[in-house]
Design a protein around this nucleic acid. Sequence first.
DNA 1: CTCATTTATTAATCTACCTTAATGCAGCTG
DNA 2: CAGCTGCATTAAGGTAGATTAATAAATGAG
Lengths: 155, 155
Amino acid sequence: MKETHIKKGQIIQRKGDLNSKVYQVKSGLLRSYTIDEKGKEHIFMFASEGWLIADIVWPDEPCELFIDALENSVVVGWEKNIRMNHDVEKLIRRIRVLQKRVILLMSASALERYEHFVETYPKIVQRVPQKMIASYLGITPEALSTVKRNRIQKQ
Amino acid sequence: MKETHIKKGQIIQRKGDLNSKVYQVKSGLLRSYTIDEKGKEHIFMFASEGWLIADIVWPDEPCELFIDALENSVVVGWEKNIRMNHDVEKLIRRIRVLQKRVILLMSASALERYEHFVETYPKIVQRVPQKMIASYLGITPEALSTVKRNRIQKQ
DNA sequence: CTCATTTATTAATCTACCTTAATGCAGCTG
DNA sequence: CAGCTGCATTAAGGTAGATTAATAAATGAG
């Protein structure tokens, strides 16, 4: 149960790292993301107080995702032991989230995806720069900007 | 180990069903898919000989996906018991596939996604109607048609 | 506090993909 | 065999979102 303090901007896990851990967030805010062949970042998840964040890989497999801090944070890092990987319920929940995201990417407009995000993670929206929400949604920051403008005019 | 014969077109699992099973494909070809609020089908996976196909949900939870046969098939249905759900490696592999798909949907063109599909599942391409590959890729059959034409002209 | 950097907004243009619709082509079925 | 049905292709026109660029606002460092 050793707590680690992480400064905003600090990267605690890089793609390709071995022995990746599971991090329980005590305070602050982190994200996991990849960088594609074209050099663009794509955010997979945000994790604030009480959440777990980790790259889901088999132990001793190089990891796929970067994890860094969006705010000064405190985390507890666990060795990714059998116990964690057998937390099947969390894996299933993760699959559900990813399935939902695939459907939204395939069938919903940027506006619909944004509204879904706001409903699902209202607190995250307050704390994260727009460009990162855009990255999560799979659109450009410019597009998110106009989406928000149109959204307000509708109300 | 009771084998079940399934005719082409037959649905063996519907969204909302309880007690969904894990199916091991002995022969033939099946797919899992959802139908979104707009009535569109979105295919999550194809499964031919040797593959497992199932909706990844907690036992006794209503399932999310439909499963049906694209060819006359033979499957063995397993109760979704602790054994299956603890097959953590398969869950992790599933997460990887979904993560890759999210990235591709967010960063790759229809052509790039099609090429990735052909490389990854060359045998499926032969056996499945174009419109279903289009559904998997998240584009219309018309768009896939022009993608293929442009692809041939490039070579 | 001041300057530099990052982030957000807006607008103009461009393009990939969608929508619609027409046509041709199997594969069934009576 | 003719007639139906579903699938693939093609083309014309429309649209959501990307790209580019300029400006404004917020953040951060010295």
